[in-house]
Design a protein around this nucleic acid. Structure first.
Length: 292
DNA sequence: CCCCTCACCTGATCGC
DNA sequence: TGCGATCAGGTGAGGG
């Protein structure tokens, strides 16, 4: 989504903003009038991402220099950002931003979200603790870098796995430890590394933890190359197109089918109020390596 | 302080 | 055709 937005909206001016459902501003500190006022007339800079948060830095308004604000978007479970022409509408559009781009002319951003777990907001930028010259929106400050980020700290992540009293899938889904991993990519990376979702993190050997992190990166790289995971019309890129990673899934949603590695049945269990998909043979809770 | 549960929401689909 | 149950890819406040 970030890559799709960049060439289209960088340098565009937000000429008009409409909020159809104020609940989509759940992460915005203020009423919709405030969101509209602060966004209208601003120029979009290059879109940025950390984990599942996307933001578009805004130029400083002429009368308020050095402000440092961004339009922040999170898709939640069902959000989409669709890049449209001025005449195209989308069902379940919660927020609409009309844009004027010096090269591409009139554009429209439709923020579409069925369940309204996603949001848009205007947020102030803060220095990151590890790279103070790089800024992130205040609501993103507690989110860890993702494993494809050049400043992701492998040693810090491995240390956290040792210290935490939790299980490995919980840790993968904990965006304060490592960001960008959701239920699909957690299950896929765990399968690739042959780790059971309920393996206590402190019993994971260092070698296994390193392998797991490598598999997370491999899953991310493949999913990004294929444009993400689309099961239906709900998960689309900015041009309304489906990603192809769903064709590459080994265990997610594959319950009842054969494990691509050993041929035994893929099973699904309830875990954290969601589905966990794994091979009961390849992925078993193993006795921990004793580390001092 | 750390970890886990649950609330937050709507719409599509399926079985009866 | 209609109705109720079920399901869905995330986050963070608050309780234990």
């Amino acid at each position: 989504m970030r890559a799709g937005l960049e060439p289209a909206i960088t340098g565009a001016t937000a000429t008009s903003v409409t909020v159809f459902d104020e609940r989509s501003l759940r992460r915005h500190d203020g009423p919709s009038e405030d969101f509209i006022d602060r966004l209208s007339g601003r120029v979009f800079q290059t879109p940025q991402r950390r984990g599942k948060f996307l933001w578009i830095p805004l130029d400083d308004p002429a009368d308020v220099p050095g402000h440092g604000e961004a339009l922040v978007a999170h898709l939640g479970m069902s959000g989409q950002v669709l890049l449209r022409d001025r005449s195209t509408d989308d069902r379940l559009t919660r927020i609409r931003i009309e844009l004027d781009h010096p090269d591409h002319g009139a554009l429209r951003l439709n923020f579409v979200d069925q369940r309204i777990f996603g949001s848009m907001s205007i947020d102030s930028m803060l220095p990151t603790d590890d790279q103070p010259h790089l800024l992130v929106p205040s609501q993103v400050a507690h989110i860890a870098r993702d494993p494809l980020d050049p400043f992701f700290d492998d040693a810090k992540f491995l240390r956290a796995l040792k210290v935490k009293r939790t299980t490995v899938k919980r840790a993968l889904l904990d965006q304060t430890l490592v960001s960008g991993i959701g239920n699909i990519y957690a299950d896929e990376a765990l399968w690739a590394a042959q780790v059971h979702y309920n393996q206590p993190t402190e019993t994971l050997s260092r070698a296994k933890a390193i392998m797991l992190l490598a598999e997370v990166r491999a899953v991310f790289a493949k999913a990004l190359a294929e444009g993400g995971t689309s099961f239906d019309a709900q998960y689309l890129n900015v041009n309304g197109e489906s990603g192809y990673f769903a064709h590459s899934l080994n265990v997610y949603g594959q319950q009842g089918k054969a494990c691509p590695r050993c041929g035994r049945e893929v099973v699904r269990e309830q875990f954290m109020n969601r589905g966990s998909h794994f091979c009961g043979f390849c992925q078993r809770v193993r006795a921990g390596s004793q580390s001092v």
